[in-house]
Design a protein around this nucleic acid. Structure first.
Length: 357
DNA sequence: TCTGGGGTCCTAGGACCC
DNA sequence: TCTGGGGTCCTAGGACCC
């Protein structure tokens, strides 16, 4: 195959809700909210809402009980990881089967596809048709000359459409939009940019990268300036992903106070984290314990330990960290992260949101 | 009845070394 | 008595993404 190299960003439309509708067709067209164990009286948040539910102002990250209040008629379903993973794998297999495609998976429901073609729109439509035929799921496709432009383009294609963003039309389309619309700029960074007199993408694109260094540091400053222009890497990298670490978090339905309960919780957390680590046969080189004291004060402590894959050793280290928990103070959440030793050649992997692009 | 759970990377500042 | 300058390693915390 010959042609110009293009980056396609493929993103499934309301993925989780769509998967739920597939196995329960009677839910089609209804406001669907997926989150937690599907019980709006529990502490949990929304994972996904269908378009019908979003019309009521429900979005992911919102507390489930608030969402339920906003949409009294909503169908509220529990999160079913296995079902979404299976659907995701079918989608990714379909993408990999496309002629000339290099596939870089970004998450359950999205991936970059690198391809050389004279007609990226035609290719995108073939991808959409193939995914639909194989999985009955609709997707939107962004086309770009960089990864960032392809990723941003997808938003203009939704639902089920195709949109192209290149150096040629980037500023026309994005220039007057707030910096928050960029991939990698959230509420905090956009507020800090505004403090520097930069509110729009065009203003960020025109900024001098060095001017951003005092505020954001030597890497992030220039990185944001580049992001404003939509510039960056254009190579889709299908190198298999090597996880840097694994973590588990638990929010307690009732705050923990009893130190014995806290100890048990840390022990259980450690066991869960180790399941993931051991499944990969990796060694642990660091542990971090996260504690959220009710209501919202979150602290972290820990890290570096001598490299080991010994269960008891790791458990002992985790319990050492647990000893630093303030006694008698109600705890709402506990999290444990294990940092893993990296194979030498995998240290420099691609990453969706930072550096390298 | 406010705030999930899984990730990644960057930065600031202290400790320590020569 | 005063106190360089470069470097590395580490922790805690911040920010963002799906």
């Amino acid at each position: 195959m010959s042609g110009i190299p293009w980056v396609l960003h493929v993103d499934l439309d309301q993925f989780i809700a769509a998967v739920e509708v597939l196995r329960r067709p009677e839910l089609a067209g209804k406001p669907i909210i997926v989150g937690g164990r599907g019980d709006p009286t529990e502490r949990a948040v929304v994972s996904t809402a269908s378009y019908e539910a979003r019309a009521f102002g429900v979005g992911s990250g919102m507390p489930l009980r608030i969402a339920a209040r906003k949409v009294p008629d909503a169908v509220i379903l529990p999160v079913d990881h296995e079902a979404y993973l299976a659907a995701s794998e079918a989608v990714m297999a379909t993408l990999r089967a496309q002629p000339g495609a290099t596939v870089q998976v970004l998450g359950w429901d999205e991936a970059f596809v690198g391809v050389e073609t004279e007609d990226p729109e035609a290719y995108a439509h073939r991808v959409q048709a193939a995914v639909l035929a194989r999985t009955e799921l609709h997707c939107s496709v962004g086309i770009g000359d960089t990864l960032v432009r392809a990723k941003v383009a997808t938003g203009f294609g939704k639902p089920a459409g195709v949109f192209r963003l290149t150096a040629g039309n980037w500023l026309d389309v994005m220039g007057s939009r707030p910096t928050k619309d960029l991939w990698g700029v959230g509420a905090r960074v956009s507020a800090r940019l505004a403090k520097l007199g930069i509110s729009t993408v065009a203003e960020l694109a025109a900024s001098n990268p060095q001017d951003l260094v005092p505020e954001f540091g030597p890497k992030m400053g220039p990185w944001y300036a580049q992001l404003g222009r939509g510039d960056g890497a254009s190579v889709v990298d299908d190198t298999p992903w090597v996880a840097r670490g694994h973590s588990r978090e638990t929010t307690f339905q009732h705050d923990l106070i009893d130190p014995v309960q806290v100890e048990d919780a840390v022990r259980e957390l450690t066991a869960h984290v180790l399941e993931d680590v051991e499944a990969e046969g990796r060694a642990v080189i660091g542990l971090t314990l996260k504690v959220r004291y009710a209501p919202f004060l979150t602290t972290t402590q820990g890290k570096k330990i001598p490299e080991t894959s010994d269960r008891n050793e790791i458990l002992a280290r985790a319990m050492d960290l647990a000893a630093g928990i303030e006694a008698g103070r109600p705890i709402r959440l506990l999290g444990l992260r294990a940092e893993m030793a990296m194979p030498d050649d995998a240290r420099k992997g691609h990453t969706p949101t930072r550096g390298g692009w």
